[in-house]
Design a binder for these strands. Structure first.
Lengths: 201, 201
DNA sequence: CTAGTTTTTGATAGTTACTCTCATTTCATG
DNA sequence: CATGAAATGAGAGTAACTATCAAAAACTAG
């Protein structure tokens, strides 16, 4: 997260990339996602439209890039092996979230708000989550020693991902979308319920 | 499912719609999704390109239209109220699947195969599933008498949807995508595991 | 610092999904 | 059959992408 890129080239690329993301976010908020063109974003970031597509394969990707999922997975992997899988996942997520600066929270809040509003983005965000499911399933398999395509492993991974999906935004709970500490507490409770066994009366 | 449309107009529209879907499916299989243009589909179905977009808002929708989700929800609702929620969902799904003709299974198999192959379609299919989650959650709320935004309800809906996501294709389990009786059995087992409580050692 | 190599960029042209508008055709109804 | 409503086709326009190629910027060696 703090690995400073070395060469001038790398620094410039990182800068351009960040500029594109920030201006895109700003313009989307100001004018709406659909009515903001890639050309406008490129112009605001002072690069050519071609360059935009060199940094992001589609207009959607400029806000869909998710920097944290792999970090969370790594944090989960780093938990002591004797810990129960759900507990490991919970702690891993908590560690990462606790490491967020207020700026990151704010950026993430704005991002999630957009995801909640634009259906095409929501769709792709869901897809990302389903890929997270695969990673979580892999971790579960490692920890239990069972094969990754074991039904019990898949079901567990699915259930955990489903709880995350149901409890966190984009746009799921009451009111406007926002990721905050509160949401995280709810997630903790949700996983807790799953662990104890759901009330399936 | 068998409500015959009355007027000539309705019949023609249904025919055009079906023709567009079938030719699209065929062309996608023959040439690939990306390299098939909407114009080609329209031509094959003998309508103008404009007409295509009158029937389907986007190229994606021509294969994404899901006819069965609402049917399943209705079937779940129809289960006796004293039945446990998971059991109701399981029976509802079984009833609907059992009503499928071999032709429907075959069409569904081809559809799922495409969904598994084309990432953009997978993304939207996942989004559909997440909307199914909302419906399932609503049903759970009705049956338990709890409010729909109760955390326990949301967590349960999420877990159920997650299991469905993890166990069914598109493209999740081993081998190529296909929906068959086997997949359904796996789904039954998966839900069963969830109901009994997952092995969360 | 210079010269040569590689990487990144910008400009241009082209394809295709999708939108809007309007005239024409096709069905429904009295 | 006549009149109104709904569906279609045709045309022009926008914007997201793709491919190509030449110019510019950055790394590397001498």
């Amino acid at each position: 997260m703090t690995a400073t890129p070395t060469s001038l080239r790398e620094r410039k690329k990182a800068k351009t990339r960040a500029a594109l993301r920030e201006h895109a976010m700003r313009l989307f908020e100001e004018q709406g996602y659909a009515s903001t063109t890639v050309d406008q974003i490129a112009e605001a970031a002072e690069v050519s439209p071609s360059t935009f597509f060199r940094y992001f394969p589609t207009k959607e990707d400029v806000i869909l890039v998710d920097d944290y999922d792999p970090v969370i997975i790594a944090a989960v992997r780093a938990q002591p092996p004797e810990m129960s899988p759900i507990e490991a996942i919970r702690r891993g997520m908590k560690e990462v979230f606790d490491s967020f600066t207020p700026e990151i929270w704010e950026a993430e809040r704005r991002r999630q708000s957009l995801l909640a509003q634009v259906p095409e983005l929501r769709a792709r965000a869901m897809h990302q989550l389903s890929e997270a499911l695969d990673m979580i399933t892999a971790v579960l398999a490692e920890r239990t020693g069972l094969p990754a395509d074991d039904l019990r492993i898949r079901a567990m991974g699915g259930a955990i991902t489903g709880v995350v999906m149901a409890v966190l935004p984009p746009g799921r709970m009451t009111g406007e979308a926002s990721i905050e500490a509160r949401d995280f507490e709810r997630l903790q409770e949700g996983l807790d319920l799953l662990q104890r066994g759901l009330p399936l009366a």
